[in-house]
C-alpha cells in the first residue's frame, strides 16, 4: 500500500508514557501504515512558548522543523502539541518569511491522532474491543484550537463492549496548563478536583482523553484522592482487542 506515517510522540509520551506511543503505532500499523520514528525528535517547544520564552521556543520549533520537514504525514498523540505546531509556530516566525513558508508547508501535514484516523485514514472502526464504562475528557487545545470534538467520540462509539458516559461538563479544563500546574499549584489542584467530581458522577471506571498531559493531571489527582478510576489515552483503548 505504501502508506507511510511519521510519529511525533511528544516528549511527555517519550519520557513518561511510552506505552501510549506504542499503542498509537500499533493501531496505525494495523491499519496498514508503515511507521517511521524520526529519532532526533524531542519537544515542540510549548513549555517555553507558554511561559513567555519566545526565543527558546523558537529554538525548539526550528529543531522540530528540521526533523520533520521531509515527512509526508506526521501524527501526534496530543492535541496540545499538535496545536503548538499548527497554530503557534507561525507566530514564532512572523518576522522570518522563509521559515514561515516552511512552517505553513509543514503544518498542514501534522495531525492529532484521532483526527488523523477519521480524516486521513478515513476509519472509525479500528477493530478494538474494550469492555468498560468510560468517560471522555476533551483536552482544551484539541477542542478549541483544533476543533476536535466528534472524532474521538465516533471512534469510541465503534469500540466493542465500550459504554461511553459523558461527564458534565466534559469541556471544562482539568487545570493542567503546563507550568501553570506548578506556578499556581493549589489553584490547578482545585480545578483537577472539580474535574474529578464530574468524572466520578458518571460512574465510569476509565477516563479517556487525547492528551497525556491532561491524563497525568487527572490520574495524579485521582491517585491522590485514593480513587480506583484509571486514565487511558485513546490510543490505548483503540489498541485493546
Amino acid at each position: 500500500m505504501g502508506k507511510r506515517v511519521s510519529l511525533f510522540v511528544t516528549c511527555m509520551v517519550d519520557q513518561l508514557f511510552p506505552k501510549v506511543g506504542m499503542a498509537m503505532a500499533g493501531v496505525l500499523e494495523r491499519l496498514g501504515y508503515e511507521i517511521d520514528f524520526p529519532e532526533d525528535q524531542t519537544c515542540c517547544g510549548q513549555p517555553a512558548f507558554n511561559s513567555g520564552y519566545r526565543e527558546e521556543a523558537r529554538a525548539a520549533a526550528r529543531h522540530f522543523l528540521k526533523v520533520f520537514e521531509a515527512c509526508e504525514q506526521i501524527v501526534a498523540p496530543s492535541g496540545s502539541c499538535t496545536s503548538m505546531v499548527t497554530h503557534h509556530f507561525a507566530e514564532l516566525f512572523h518576522k522570518e518569511p522563509e521559515t514561515l513558508a516552511r512552517v505553513h508547508a509543514l503544518e498542514k501535514r501534522v495531525w492529532e491522532f484521532s483526527s488523523f484516523l477519521t480524516e486521513v485514514a478515513g476509519v472509525e472502526d479500528v477493530g478494538a474491543r474494550f469492555e468498560e464504562v468510560v468517560t471522555f475528557h476533551d483536552g482544551c487545545h484539541a477542542l478549541r484550537e483544533l476543533g476536535i470534538r466528534s472524532a474521538p467520540r465516533r471512534l469510541l462509539a465503534k469500540v466493542r463492549g465500550l459504554e461511553l458516559r459523558e461527564m458534565v461538563p466534559a469541556e471544562e479544563c482539568c487545570g493542567f496548563g503546563g507550568t501553570f500546574s506548578v506556578k499556581f499549584a493549589e489553584l490547578s489542584g482545585a480545578m483537577a478536583r472539580t474535574k474529578i467530581e464530574a468524572i466520578v458522577k458518571t460512574g465510569a471506571n476509565t477516563v479517556v482523553s487525547l492528551d497525556p498531559s491532561c491524563l497525568m493531571q487527572i490520574q495524579g489527582a485521582l491517585s491522590r484522592a485514593g480513587s480506583g478510576i484509571r486514565t487511558m489515552h485513546l490510543a490505548e483503548v483503540l489498541a485493546s482487542r
Binding site: 517519550d14 506504542m22 499549584a185 489542584g189 497525568m216 495524579g220 489527582a221
Partner: peptide, 28 residues
C-alpha cells in the same frame, strides 16, 4: 526541586517507565 514539590502538593506523579519510547521502539 521546587516544581516537583509544587506538583506533589496537590497530585501524585507517574512512576518512571523502565524504558523511554525511543528505547522501546529500537528494541521491538
Amino acid at each position: 526541586l521546587a516544581p516537583v514539590r509544587a506538583w506533589l502538593s496537590q497530585r501524585d506523579l507517574p512512576p518512571p517507565p523502565s524504558k523511554s519510547f525511543r528505547e522501546m521502539w529500537r528494541r521491538r
